[in-house]
Design a protein around this nucleic acid. Structure first.
Lengths: 150, 150
DNA sequence: GAAAGTTTGTTTAATGTTGAACAAATAGTA
DNA sequence: TACTATTTGTTCAACATTAAACAAACTTTC
């Protein structure tokens, strides 16, 4: 017999929404992750390449902020991408601490080949929503996730 | 200079929504995770305890489906909780393969102490939404995440 | 009842992730 | 200039997670 938590109506409603949002996000990302695994890419690696593709060369710190991962992790992910010649590192002449990560030609070709497939899968996942619902979902998620301090 | 992907309006809108949802979910869960770390609990451990608390004793397979984690992982998470005497294992008399996981008294006391704090943090996270927005967000996330086949 | 297939949980190896400690470069301040 | 603090990236140990291989218990089918 289930033991129920006692909570106000507002608390229950919030918890339900939180769980639905987490499950939706995690299950979609999990499915996408399985597809990327066929190309021997992790979600983090893909995130890095995609950020470089859409936003141009960046420091590791910036990339970490984009994909919400730790500095030490970015070091590893970038190193692994570098081993596959998909990205390259170069010194920032204006700041000796920073490293600038850039997509190689090979990386550019790679993302141009696989990004459309990835995008198609995402569109497929969200195809149950009407155009208005899609927009509203985005608005609400942005409103909730706005607290970007860690 | 940023390199932009070419994509239809619908594709761009979908991608934006997907990114906002992922970031919202991950940043909230990340902040919650940091709070739980103070009690030496991982998100997965807390998820297991919470499921047992709200839904009663269950098999590991069921728990895995609840928190969207692999079988091997559940084995480890449950073992770690068992070491801390928060859950216990018992045989299922009707099925020799299955193990039934139950909250111990200690586990019960633990969750009753820390769940309210956890819930408060979640309510806090979602407090930027109106009541109607909260309901609508839940509805949309459920609609998107419904494809629960892995 | 035996054989084949399925489900449940465990083990193992490989890898991702984190937090802390660290070094190097920069910025700020007296 | 020197002194301190901050920022950036790296290294390392600990741990979470996964996929695959496996064993044990069930189910189905003949």
């Amino acid at each position: 017999m289930p033991t129920h938590h006692k909570g106000s109506k507002k608390e229950k409603e919030t918890l339900n929404t939180f769980i639905k949002m987490t499950r939706a996000s995690e299950s979609i990302n999990h499915r996408l992750s399985r597809s990327l695994a066929c190309e021997n890419l992790t979600i983090s690696q893909f995130g890095i390449i995609e950020a470089l593709y859409h936003l141009g060369p960046q420091s590791q710190r910036e990339l970490g902020a984009k994909i919400l991962k730790t500095g030490g992790n970015i070091t590893l992910v970038v190193d692994n991408l570098e081993k596959r010649n998909l990205v390259s590192k170069s010194k920032n002449p204006n700041d000796g601490r920073a490293v600038i990560i850039t997509l190689t030609n090979e990386g550019q070709k790679f993302i141009e080949k696989y990004f459309p497939e990835h995008l198609n899968r995402i569109v497929e996942e969200f195809s149950v929503l009407t155009s208005e619902e899609l927009t509203e979902l985005g608005r609400l998620c942005k409103k909730v996730g706005i607290k970007e301090n860690n």
